[in-house]
Amino acid sequence: MNATDRTPADLLRSALATDPARPLVTFYDDATGERIELSVATFANWVAKTANLLQNELSAEPGDRVALLLPAHWQTAVWLLACSSAGVVADVGGDPAAADHVVAGPGEFEAGLACSGDRIALSLAPLGRRFPTPPAGYADYAVEVPTQGDRFQPYAPVDPELPALIVAGAEYTSAELVERARADAAVLGLTGPGSRILSALPYDTWEGLSAGLYAALATGGSVVLCRHLEQLGEDALAKRIESERVSATAR
Protein backbone atom coordinates (compact mmCIF):
# COMPACT_ATOMS: atom_id res chain seq x y z
CA MET A 1 0.00 0.00 0.00
CA ASN A 2 1.13 3.56 -0.61
CA ALA A 3 1.78 6.06 2.16
CA THR A 4 -0.16 8.62 0.12
CA ASP A 5 -3.39 6.58 0.21
CA ARG A 6 -5.93 8.56 2.25
CA THR A 7 -9.27 6.96 1.41
CA PRO A 8 -10.43 3.33 1.30
CA ALA A 9 -10.88 3.76 -2.47
CA ASP A 10 -7.20 4.77 -2.67
CA LEU A 11 -6.25 1.59 -0.82
CA LEU A 12 -8.23 -0.52 -3.26
CA ARG A 13 -6.63 1.19 -6.26
CA SER A 14 -3.19 0.50 -4.83
CA ALA A 15 -4.07 -3.15 -4.23
CA LEU A 16 -5.32 -3.40 -7.80
CA ALA A 17 -2.11 -1.91 -9.16
CA THR A 18 0.11 -4.15 -7.02
CA ASP A 19 -1.40 -7.63 -7.37
CA PRO A 20 -4.88 -7.80 -8.91
CA ALA A 21 -5.03 -11.61 -8.97
CA ARG A 22 -4.52 -12.24 -5.25
CA PRO A 23 -7.49 -13.01 -2.99
CA LEU A 24 -8.94 -10.06 -1.11
CA VAL A 25 -12.22 -11.30 0.42
CA THR A 26 -13.13 -14.94 0.99
CA PHE A 27 -16.65 -15.28 2.35
CA TYR A 28 -18.24 -18.21 4.17
CA ASP A 29 -21.84 -18.56 5.31
CA ASP A 30 -21.96 -21.59 7.57
CA ALA A 31 -25.77 -21.55 7.60
CA THR A 32 -25.94 -22.19 3.85
CA GLY A 33 -22.57 -23.76 3.05
CA GLU A 34 -21.67 -20.87 0.73
CA ARG A 35 -18.05 -20.09 0.00
CA ILE A 36 -17.01 -17.41 -2.47
CA GLU A 37 -13.57 -15.96 -3.07
CA LEU A 38 -13.04 -12.58 -4.67
CA SER A 39 -9.69 -11.51 -6.03
CA VAL A 40 -8.68 -7.88 -5.83
CA ALA A 41 -9.67 -7.46 -9.49
CA THR A 42 -13.09 -9.11 -9.08
CA PHE A 43 -13.85 -7.18 -5.91
CA ALA A 44 -12.78 -3.92 -7.55
CA ASN A 45 -15.08 -4.65 -10.50
CA TRP A 46 -18.05 -5.10 -8.16
CA VAL A 47 -17.09 -1.87 -6.42
CA ALA A 48 -16.88 0.05 -9.70
CA LYS A 49 -20.27 -1.20 -10.86
CA THR A 50 -21.85 -0.39 -7.51
CA ALA A 51 -20.30 3.08 -7.40
CA ASN A 52 -21.67 3.74 -10.89
CA LEU A 53 -25.08 2.61 -9.66
CA LEU A 54 -24.82 5.07 -6.79
CA GLN A 55 -23.63 8.01 -8.85
CA ASN A 56 -25.41 7.54 -12.16
CA GLU A 57 -28.65 5.74 -11.29
CA LEU A 58 -29.37 6.90 -7.74
CA SER A 59 -27.88 10.37 -8.35
CA ALA A 60 -26.04 10.12 -5.02
CA GLU A 61 -23.88 13.17 -4.40
CA PRO A 62 -20.82 13.61 -2.17
CA GLY A 63 -22.00 13.95 1.41
CA ASP A 64 -25.23 12.01 0.88
CA ARG A 65 -25.91 9.41 3.56
CA VAL A 66 -26.51 5.79 2.59
CA ALA A 67 -27.97 3.60 5.36
CA LEU A 68 -26.51 0.10 5.04
CA LEU A 69 -28.91 -2.31 6.76
CA LEU A 70 -26.73 -5.32 6.05
CA PRO A 71 -24.77 -7.97 7.98
CA ALA A 72 -21.09 -8.81 7.62
CA HIS A 73 -21.12 -10.10 4.04
CA TRP A 74 -18.97 -9.78 0.93
CA GLN A 75 -21.61 -7.61 -0.73
CA THR A 76 -21.62 -5.29 2.28
CA ALA A 77 -17.86 -4.91 1.85
CA VAL A 78 -18.48 -3.99 -1.79
CA TRP A 79 -21.00 -1.32 -0.78
CA LEU A 80 -18.62 0.15 1.81
CA LEU A 81 -15.92 0.64 -0.84
CA ALA A 82 -18.43 1.87 -3.41
CA CYS A 83 -19.60 4.56 -1.00
CA SER A 84 -15.99 5.57 -0.44
CA SER A 85 -15.39 5.72 -4.20
CA ALA A 86 -18.38 8.02 -4.75
CA GLY A 87 -17.73 10.20 -1.72
CA VAL A 88 -20.99 9.34 0.01
CA VAL A 89 -21.28 8.47 3.69
CA ALA A 90 -21.82 4.80 4.55
CA ASP A 91 -24.04 4.77 7.63
CA VAL A 92 -23.83 1.18 8.89
CA GLY A 93 -27.08 0.23 10.59
CA GLY A 94 -28.15 3.86 10.35
CA ASP A 95 -31.62 5.32 10.65
CA PRO A 96 -33.29 4.96 7.24
CA ALA A 97 -35.54 7.95 7.93
CA ALA A 98 -32.47 10.19 8.19
CA ALA A 99 -30.75 8.72 5.12
CA ASP A 100 -30.80 9.84 1.51
CA HIS A 101 -30.73 6.24 0.28
CA VAL A 102 -31.03 2.82 1.90
CA VAL A 103 -29.52 -0.56 1.08
CA ALA A 104 -31.19 -3.41 2.94
CA GLY A 105 -30.99 -7.16 3.29
CA PRO A 106 -33.46 -9.78 4.52
CA GLY A 107 -35.09 -8.84 7.81
CA GLU A 108 -34.57 -5.12 7.22
CA PHE A 109 -36.91 -4.35 4.35
CA GLU A 110 -39.76 -3.03 6.47
CA ALA A 111 -37.43 -0.75 8.43
CA GLY A 112 -35.86 0.53 5.23
CA LEU A 113 -39.19 1.81 3.94
CA ALA A 114 -38.75 4.78 6.29
CA CYS A 115 -36.24 6.17 3.78
CA SER A 116 -37.88 8.58 1.37
CA GLY A 117 -35.09 8.21 -1.17
CA ASP A 118 -33.94 5.30 -3.32
CA ARG A 119 -34.09 1.84 -1.79
CA ILE A 120 -31.95 -1.09 -2.94
CA ALA A 121 -32.59 -4.66 -1.78
CA LEU A 122 -29.99 -7.43 -1.56
CA SER A 123 -31.09 -11.04 -1.39
CA LEU A 124 -27.74 -12.11 0.16
CA ALA A 125 -28.40 -15.49 -1.47
CA PRO A 126 -25.40 -17.52 -2.68
CA LEU A 127 -23.77 -15.96 -5.75
CA GLY A 128 -25.84 -12.81 -5.22
CA ARG A 129 -28.93 -14.26 -6.84
CA ARG A 130 -31.95 -12.15 -7.75
CA PHE A 131 -35.19 -12.12 -5.83
CA PRO A 132 -38.05 -14.05 -7.46
CA THR A 133 -40.00 -10.84 -6.80
CA PRO A 134 -38.22 -7.79 -5.28
CA PRO A 135 -39.57 -6.52 -1.95
CA ALA A 136 -42.22 -3.83 -2.38
CA GLY A 137 -40.67 -0.38 -2.59
CA TYR A 138 -37.19 -1.65 -3.55
CA ALA A 139 -35.07 -2.17 -6.64
CA ASP A 140 -33.20 -5.48 -6.82
CA TYR A 141 -29.43 -4.94 -6.62
CA ALA A 142 -28.78 -8.13 -8.58
CA VAL A 143 -30.88 -6.77 -11.45
CA GLU A 144 -29.54 -3.23 -11.40
CA VAL A 145 -25.79 -3.71 -10.95
CA PRO A 146 -24.76 -6.01 -13.87
CA THR A 147 -25.48 -3.35 -16.50
CA GLN A 148 -23.31 -0.71 -14.81
CA GLY A 149 -19.90 0.23 -16.16
CA ASP A 150 -16.75 -1.63 -15.18
CA ARG A 151 -14.81 1.58 -14.62
CA PHE A 152 -15.75 4.33 -12.21
CA GLN A 153 -14.77 7.97 -12.17
CA PRO A 154 -16.30 10.27 -9.54
CA TYR A 155 -17.67 13.55 -10.81
CA ALA A 156 -15.48 15.31 -8.23
CA PRO A 157 -12.40 14.09 -6.32
CA VAL A 158 -13.23 12.56 -2.94
CA ASP A 159 -12.08 14.80 -0.07
CA PRO A 160 -10.28 12.63 2.55
CA GLU A 161 -11.21 15.10 5.30
CA LEU A 162 -14.96 14.79 4.83
CA PRO A 163 -17.13 12.20 6.63
CA ALA A 164 -17.04 8.77 5.02
CA LEU A 165 -18.34 6.29 7.59
CA ILE A 166 -20.75 6.19 10.52
CA VAL A 167 -20.86 3.09 12.71
CA ALA A 168 -22.07 2.58 16.28
CA GLY A 169 -22.73 6.31 16.55
CA ALA A 170 -19.17 7.36 15.66
CA GLU A 171 -18.29 9.29 12.50
CA TYR A 172 -14.99 8.94 10.63
CA THR A 173 -13.48 10.81 7.73
CA SER A 174 -11.78 8.82 5.00
CA ALA A 175 -8.37 9.86 6.32
CA GLU A 176 -9.26 8.86 9.88
CA LEU A 177 -10.57 5.53 8.65
CA VAL A 178 -7.35 4.70 6.80
CA GLU A 179 -5.18 5.82 9.71
CA ARG A 180 -7.14 3.72 12.21
CA ALA A 181 -7.11 0.69 9.92
CA ARG A 182 -3.34 0.86 9.59
CA ALA A 183 -2.93 1.16 13.35
CA ASP A 184 -5.32 -1.75 13.95
CA ALA A 185 -3.45 -4.04 11.59
CA ALA A 186 -0.51 -4.57 13.93
CA VAL A 187 -2.84 -5.20 16.88
CA LEU A 188 -4.80 -7.76 14.87
CA GLY A 189 -1.64 -9.56 13.77
CA LEU A 190 -1.63 -8.38 10.17
CA THR A 191 2.06 -7.92 9.52
CA GLY A 192 1.91 -6.84 5.90
CA PRO A 193 1.30 -8.21 2.37
CA GLY A 194 0.21 -11.82 2.44
CA SER A 195 -1.28 -11.66 5.93
CA ARG A 196 -4.69 -13.28 6.13
CA ILE A 197 -7.22 -12.70 8.89
CA LEU A 198 -10.32 -14.77 9.66
CA SER A 199 -13.06 -12.57 11.11
CA ALA A 200 -16.42 -13.61 12.49
CA LEU A 201 -17.15 -10.21 14.03
CA PRO A 202 -20.33 -8.41 12.94
CA TYR A 203 -20.06 -5.22 10.93
CA ASP A 204 -21.98 -3.12 13.48
CA THR A 205 -18.85 -1.81 15.25
CA TRP A 206 -15.60 -0.24 14.10
CA GLU A 207 -13.76 -3.30 15.41
CA GLY A 208 -15.82 -5.59 13.20
CA LEU A 209 -15.37 -3.43 10.12
CA SER A 210 -11.64 -3.10 10.70
CA ALA A 211 -11.04 -6.81 11.29
CA GLY A 212 -13.44 -7.81 8.54
CA LEU A 213 -12.23 -5.46 5.80
CA TYR A 214 -10.31 -2.26 6.37
CA ALA A 215 -7.20 -3.47 8.25
CA ALA A 216 -6.44 -6.12 5.65
CA LEU A 217 -7.02 -3.66 2.82
CA ALA A 218 -4.71 -1.12 4.46
CA THR A 219 -1.79 -3.55 4.74
CA GLY A 220 -1.97 -5.59 1.54
CA GLY A 221 -3.56 -8.53 3.32
CA SER A 222 -6.81 -10.38 2.85
CA VAL A 223 -9.81 -11.42 4.94
CA VAL A 224 -11.71 -14.66 5.42
CA LEU A 225 -15.10 -13.27 6.42
CA CYS A 226 -17.30 -15.80 8.22
CA ARG A 227 -21.02 -15.50 8.87
CA HIS A 228 -22.78 -17.89 11.26
CA LEU A 229 -19.41 -19.26 12.37
CA GLU A 230 -21.06 -20.50 15.58
CA GLN A 231 -22.53 -23.32 13.50
CA LEU A 232 -19.06 -24.64 12.72
CA GLY A 233 -17.36 -27.03 15.15
CA GLU A 234 -13.89 -26.34 16.52
CA ASP A 235 -12.31 -29.16 14.49
CA ALA A 236 -13.84 -27.81 11.28
CA LEU A 237 -12.73 -24.31 12.21
CA ALA A 238 -9.15 -25.50 12.73
CA LYS A 239 -9.23 -27.14 9.29
CA ARG A 240 -10.53 -23.91 7.74
CA ILE A 241 -7.79 -21.87 9.38
CA GLU A 242 -5.22 -24.29 7.98
CA SER A 243 -6.69 -24.62 4.50
CA GLU A 244 -7.20 -20.86 4.13
CA ARG A 245 -3.67 -20.13 5.39
CA VAL A 246 -5.03 -17.83 8.08
CA SER A 247 -2.42 -15.95 10.09
CA ALA A 248 -4.72 -14.07 12.50
CA THR A 249 -8.26 -14.41 13.84
CA ALA A 250 -10.91 -12.08 15.23
CA ARG A 251 -14.02 -13.68 16.71
Results as ranks from 00 to 15, higher is better:
residue 147 T to W: 05
residue 150 D to C: 03
residue 150 D to Y: 01
residue 151 R to P: 00
residue 152 F to Q: 07
residue 152 F to M: 06
residue 153 Q to M: 09
residue 153 Q to F: 03
residue 155 Y to T: 11
residue 157 P to G: 07
residue 159 D to R: 10
residue 159 D to H: 04
residue 161 E to T: 11
residue 162 L to G: 01
residue 165 L to F: 12
residue 166 I to D: 10
residue 166 I to S: 12
residue 166 I to E: 15
residue 166 I to R: 14
residue 167 V to N: 10
residue 169 G to D: 08
residue 170 A to I: 00
residue 170 A to M: 06
residue 173 T to G: 10
residue 173 T to R: 11
residue 174 S to Y: 09
residue 175 A to E: 14
residue 175 A to Q: 13
residue 175 A to P: 00
residue 177 L to K: 05
residue 178 V to C: 06
residue 178 V to E: 03
residue 179 E to I: 00
residue 181 A to I: 08
residue 181 A to E: 04
residue 182 R to I: 02
residue 182 R to N: 02
residue 182 R to E: 03
residue 185 A to T: 07
residue 185 A to F: 07
residue 186 A to F: 09
residue 187 V to D: 08
residue 188 L to Q: 04
residue 190 L to Q: 06
residue 190 L to C: 04
residue 193 P to Y: 12
residue 194 G to K: 05
residue 194 G to Y: 10
residue 194 G to E: 10
residue 195 S to M: 09
residue 197 I to L: 15
residue 197 I to C: 06
residue 198 L to Q: 02
residue 199 S to V: 06
residue 199 S to M: 04
residue 200 A to G: 15
residue 203 Y to H: 12
residue 205 T to Y: 07
residue 206 W to A: 05
residue 207 E to W: 05
residue 208 G to H: 11
residue 209 L to N: 08
residue 209 L to P: 10
residue 209 L to F: 09
residue 210 S to D: 13
residue 211 A to V: 03
residue 211 A to F: 01
residue 211 A to C: 03
residue 213 L to K: 12
residue 214 Y to E: 02
residue 215 A to G: 05
residue 217 L to I: 02
residue 217 L to C: 02
residue 218 A to N: 02
residue 218 A to D: 01
residue 220 G to A: 06
residue 221 G to T: 06
residue 222 S to T: 04
residue 224 V to G: 04
residue 224 V to D: 02
residue 228 H to T: 01
residue 229 L to P: 00
residue 230 E to A: 12
residue 233 G to P: 01
residue 233 G to D: 15
residue 233 G to T: 11
residue 235 D to T: 12
residue 236 A to Q: 15
residue 237 L to D: 02
residue 240 R to L: 15
residue 241 I to M: 10
residue 243 S to M: 08
residue 244 E to L: 03
residue 244 E to G: 08
residue 244 E to P: 02
residue 244 E to S: 02
residue 245 R to S: 14
residue 246 V to R: 03
residue 246 V to M: 03
residue 246 V to Q: 02
residue 249 T to P: 00
residue 251 R to K: 08
residue 251 R to H: 14
residue 251 R to V: 07
